[in-house]
Structure formats: C-alpha cells, structure tokens
Amino acid sequence: EVTIKANLIFANGSTQTAEFKGTFEKATSEAYAYADTLKKDNGEYTVDVADKGYTLNIKFAG
C-alpha cells in the first residue's frame, strides 16, 4: 500500500491537501477522480507530478 499526496491549489490562492491510499494505480486514479469532481466549481486543472508520482500538485484555473 502506498499513499499519494495531492496538493490542491485553487485560483483564489487557498490550498488543501488530500491523501489517497491503496496500490499506486488505485490511489493515483482516486486522486485524479477527486480533482475531476472539483473541476465543476473550480475550473480546469493542471497537474505537476513530483516525488516520482507520489505527490501531485493540482492547480485549478478558477
């Protein structure tokens, strides 16, 4: 089991951190699915992958 950390960075400057656990593939998939649910209210997003994929910096356009 691994932990994927998602740093969520919103257009208004606020930030939030979420963690997803499971296999690497499952946790990564859940992180992207979570970002997709936030897209409606926060706009499109870009992802900067860090720490060999264990950290995702997800920035929303607003």
Rank of each mutant, 00 (worst) to 15 (best):
A31N: 01
V47Q: 02
I4W: 02
G43V: 02
Y45A: 02
I58E: 00
A6K: 00
L38R: 07
F20P: 00
A33L: 10
D41R: 14
F60D: 00
E44T: 07
G13M: 12
Y54K: 11
S29L: 15
A6S: 07
N7R: 09
V2I: 11
D48K: 11
Y45Q: 01
A33C: 03
G13R: 02
V2T: 12
T37S: 14
L38H: 07
A35S: 12
E25K: 10
E1S: 12
D51F: 03
A35I: 14
A35V: 14
A31L: 08
I9G: 08
L56K: 01
T17N: 12
S14A: 14
A27R: 00
V47K: 02
E1C: 03
V2E: 11
E1V: 15
T17A: 08
S29G: 11
D41I: 08
D51C: 03
A6P: 00
A33G: 07
I4M: 06
D36P: 01
Y45C: 02
G22Y: 02
F60N: 00
V47L: 07
D36A: 12
Y34C: 03
V49Q: 14
A35W: 02
L38S: 02
F24S: 06
N57G: 08
N57C: 04
G62L: 14
A18Q: 13
V49P: 09
K26R: 09
Q16M: 10
K40D: 12
K5E: 07
T46C: 04
I9Y: 09
A33E: 13
Y32W: 11
E30D: 14
L56F: 04
A6R: 00
F24P: 05
G22Q: 03
N7D: 05
A18L: 15
T3K: 07
I58R: 00
I9R: 10
T23Q: 13
E44K: 12
A33Q: 07
G43K: 03
F60I: 01
E25D: 15
S14W: 13
S29Q: 14
L8M: 09
F24L: 11
D48G: 10
V2P: 07
Q16R: 06
Y34P: 00
I58K: 00
G53V: 02
N7H: 13
A61F: 13
A31I: 14
G43L: 04
T23F: 03
E44L: 14
A11M: 07
T55H: 04
G22M: 02
I4Y: 01
K59M: 09
G13H: 12
T17C: 04
K59N: 06
T46L: 10
G13I: 13
K5M: 11
N12I: 15
K21Q: 13
G22V: 00
T46E: 09
V49D: 06
A27F: 00
I58V: 08
A11N: 09
D48W: 08
Q16N: 10
G62S: 06
A33R: 09
V2C: 04
A61S: 05
E25Q: 14
K52A: 13
V49W: 05
K21R: 11
A31E: 00
K39S: 05
A6Q: 03
T28F: 12
D51I: 02
T28H: 06
T46S: 04
Y54G: 14
K26S: 05
Y45D: 00
K39A: 09
S29T: 12
